[in-house]
Each structure stands twice: as C-alpha cells, then as structure tokens.
Amino acid sequence: DEVEIEDFQYDEDSETYFYPCPCGDNFSITKEDLENGEDVATCPSCSLIIKVIYD
C-alpha cells in the first residue's frame, strides 16, 4: 500500500513518523530515513510494509 506522509503521526522527540498497521502495531520511518531517500515504512510486529508518499 501507499500512504501520504500527511497521514502519519509525527513524534518530535524521536523524529519518527508512525502510521497504524492492521495488526495493531505501527509502521514507522524516521525523518533521517526520509532525508536519505528511504520511502518504505515497516511494521516491527508483522511482515507488512507500506510505501511513503511525500514531496
């Protein structure tokens, strides 16, 4: 799936974006990952991944 970065929750302390996963955990991707060109957020509890859409 693809999710807009605006739909993520941002945690300023950890500089990490979170998005709810269907399994009950959260996908996460850090601001640093995005700045380095990464665009895939992973869920630590299951095998799902999502593509992050940002400009």
Rank of each mutant, 00 (worst) to 15 (best):
D55I: 01
C23L: 01
D33I: 10
I29T: 05
C21G: 00
C43R: 00
D39I: 01
N36V: 08
Y10P: 01
I49W: 10
V3W: 01
G37D: 10
D33C: 11
L34R: 13
Y54G: 11
F8K: 00
E32T: 10
G24T: 12
E4V: 07
A41R: 06
S47M: 06
I29V: 07
S45V: 12
Y17M: 03
S28W: 08
P22K: 12
T42L: 03
V40M: 01
S14Y: 05
C23Q: 05
V40I: 02
F8N: 00
C43F: 00
D1V: 15
D7I: 03
S14Q: 15
F8R: 00
D25H: 08
C46M: 00
S28P: 12
I5F: 10
S28V: 13
S45A: 10
I29R: 10
I50W: 02
Y19T: 08
G24S: 13
D25Y: 07
D13P: 08
N36L: 10
K31I: 02
C43S: 01
A41G: 05
E35L: 10
V52T: 05
F18P: 00
P22R: 06
P44C: 02
G37C: 03
T16K: 13
N26A: 11
Y10H: 11
D1K: 15
I53G: 10
Y10C: 14
S47A: 14
C46V: 00
D25R: 09
D1W: 03
E38T: 09
D39F: 04
D33Q: 13
G37R: 09
K31E: 06
I49N: 10
Y19M: 09
Q9A: 02
E2H: 15
D7N: 11
E38C: 07
E15G: 11
D25Q: 10
T16W: 06
I49D: 11
I5M: 07
N26H: 15
D55S: 08
D39R: 12
E15N: 01
D39C: 10
I5G: 00
F8Q: 00
N26F: 12
E15C: 15
C46G: 01
S14E: 14
D13M: 07
S45P: 06
L48K: 13
N36E: 14
P20L: 12
E2A: 11
Y17H: 05
S45T: 11
F27H: 01
I50L: 11
F18A: 05
K51Q: 07
D11E: 09
I29M: 06
F8H: 00
P22I: 09
S45Y: 05
D25M: 13
C46T: 04
A41I: 01
N26S: 13
I53P: 04
D39E: 05
P44A: 07
E4H: 05
S14H: 15
D1Y: 05
F27I: 00
D33M: 14
